[in-house]
Design a protein around this nucleic acid. Structure first.
Lengths: 367, 367
DNA sequence: GCCAGTTGTTCCAACGATTGAAATAAAAAG
DNA sequence: CTTTTTATTTCAATCGTTGGAACAACTGGC
């Protein structure tokens, strides 16, 4: 601020020109360039830009002004290398083109972006080997944290164990691991199922079948439990032959429905609670084929609030999974964990509330 | 190889131990560690691992073995900083939770992953400011290349201009810029529309309306052109009042259909070509409400092959946009551009073939 | 046996930022 | 007019890799 003044503007111009020349090529402005232009050292410039407490406010302002003037962009790679913080968050999902996952990713991206973090994306394709692989890749990229939805077929969690051991913040969502000691974001599947089934009971249904997912996945087990609890609470006996397990694809829905229609007519269900909207569509197709009216003869509630449920005839009632919010939560959790020091870390468990969306497929007084 | 030998194994042990100790904490293995363990220099190790031609095969093998033994993972950040190649590809889309975009992203991820690149994701939310912002952010992260689908409301392309000036490989997909001098991946929208409309004509339709998108977006202009060409080629006059422009949302489809139904009965269209599946759904809803049978009275073809078109009653014919393939192409294009030197660069233009998917909504002999 | 050409390896200087310690200048105290 | 304190800035090391120059040790031609 002092000796520099007399050297005057000619010097500044010189450096400024040099910058301009070089930049024509492609070269990026560095701390050094700013330092030269102001007769400071790079470290001073760095400290000024990072609001170091022991830097004078005058210099800070001047440096910031010059940085803007030269259109300086810090090289995140260099900063990452030196500081050990890459400002990258790895996100691993089975497939990005599933509407649920893409919504969660949207939520994550929105949240972490705000805090200056970026999302490094990877797909596991539900394969154990691929999931291990992509987690490794993301670790190699030195992500600061990892948000993972475990693939449904995966039994070996050693890769996640490694992440934990390396003390890299890890958040699991959707499909989580119990007692794994990391923060998780889940949906209250029990409640979602309970409310859906209770709604069907309130509509007068008594013979409610359940197109269920694989019960060894906790998420589906919880939906089954919610289904059973709702029936029990209404003093309706649970019939095991009303619970049909499958992969919950459209085709599975068709198969299950056909199976149910083979029951004696007086035992035929008067309602269906499907653990996925896809299976609900399948069931609906079969009912249509058999000229069985939905909701008059059989009512249907699905799960996930896929966009198409709204467009079907009748529109299908479903349980919304708050997917974007799940992304926001996962993002917030990892940001919090990145902020705090590791020793004070206590794993959080966030359970989101599902929302029952009632549409024509389950209304008793439909027009 | 020489002076170190006399110092002997104690040194190796010392370094090995030091590594072990530190690693307990969290520290990563570096080139230096391998070098120490083998009495080589870090650069020799680096060259061995990168298969430098002047390195002996023996050393390469030995180094690689040791690297595996110590579980060495190169620090990509350091490599990126030094080499100027971050191995990151930035992908910008309006929103990741649109099925089209998420499919393209899936394709991109699959392709670039193979070549050791990773995807840095960002959403523009169709806002000009946000798009400028995220492109900046990705550049700050020093991505090696950028794949962008321009948001639909965006008129100012200075941010993309800047990317070009910085000589960073740029690929545009879906919504592209004409004569911008970068490689693009597009769908042959003209052909898609032409085939869809020709199909309707072949089904015996003569009064075909078009729910069109905003004609100042090239993509929609092409669909309109394809529609008109198909009619002309079949010697059917183009009626401008059969072309209804809108945002193509479900609601727009409803409004447009209602408008069409207000036409005198003898002028009422016998078919609908919709530039989006969403507007097709809206139209279908109105037709259902008015007890007009699809496909008997009015046939419908949509566009995009959204998953729900298959589940509706009747299933809606549509034009598939080859979205995953589009991702693959975009990925391949950027990889090629990253490989070749910039001076030999000639922008490519890939035009993908759409596929007409015929379902019940447009069949004349439906059962 | 001398010069040229390979081959395998080491040396050294980046890449662009960050960070704690040390130095310097200015201000306050004695 | 020293001496101590405080405010500001510089110094120098570091993060882990990379790649060109340098160098030593061989090979072979003449």
């Amino acid at each position: 601020m002092k000796k520099d003044l007399k050297v005057g503007t000619s010097r500044i111009k010189f450096y400024f020109c040099r910058y301009m020349m070089k930049n024509m090529g492609k070269r990026k402005v560095t701390l050094q360039d700013i330092a030269n232009a102001m007769h400071l050292t790079p470290s001073a410039v760095s400290k000024a830009l990072n609001d170091h407490p022991r830097m004078s406010d005058d210099t800070k302002a001047a440096v910031k002004k010059m940085a803007k003037k030269l259109n300086y962009k810090p090289n995140q790679l260099a900063a990452a290398l030196r500081s050990g913080r890459s400002k990258l968050i790895g996100v691993v999902v089975p497939a990005v083109d599933f509407s649920f996952f893409s919504s969660v990713i949207k939520g994550i991206e929105e949240t972490v972006m705000e805090a200056g973090y970026r999302v490094l994306l990877a797909q596991s394709g539900n394969s154990e080997q691929k999931e291990q692989e992509v987690v490794e890749t993301l670790l190699d990229a030195r992500v600061d944290g990892l948000i993972v939805s475990i693939g449904s077929d995966i039994e070996d969690f050693s890769h996640l164990q490694r992440v934990k051991e390396q003390q890299i913040p890890l958040i699991l969502f959707d499909r989580v691991l119990k007692d794994f000691g990391v923060s998780t974001v889940e949906l209250d599947d029990f409640k979602g199922a309970y409310e859906a089934v209770t709604h069907l009971i309130n509509q007068g249904c008594r013979r409610i079948a359940h197109l269920a997912g694989s019960p060894h996945l906790e998420l589906y087990a919880n939906r089954i439990a919610g289904y059973k609890a709702a029936l029990s609470d209404a003093a309706i006996a649970v019939r095991e032959d009303y619970i049909l397990n499958s992969e919950l694809l459209v085709e599975d829905g068709r198969n299950c429905m056909e199976k149910l229609l083979r029951l004696p007519i007086e035992e035929r269900p008067d309602a269906l609670f499907c653990a996925s909207d896809f299976s609900a569509v399948g069931a609906l197709q079969i009912l249509r084929k058999n000229k069985i009216c939905v909701p008059k003869e059989i009512k249907i509630v699905g799960f996930s609030n896929e966009n198409f449920t709204l467009y079907l005839e009748p529109a299908i009632s479903t349980v919304d999974q708050a997917s974007i919010e799940m992304g926001h939560c996962a993002g917030k959790l990892i940001l919090r964990q990145l902020r705090q020091e590791s020793e004070s870390f206590v794993p959080q468990r966030v359970v989101l509330e599902p929302t029952l969306i009632i549409r024509n497929s389950s209304k008793s007084d439909t027009d």
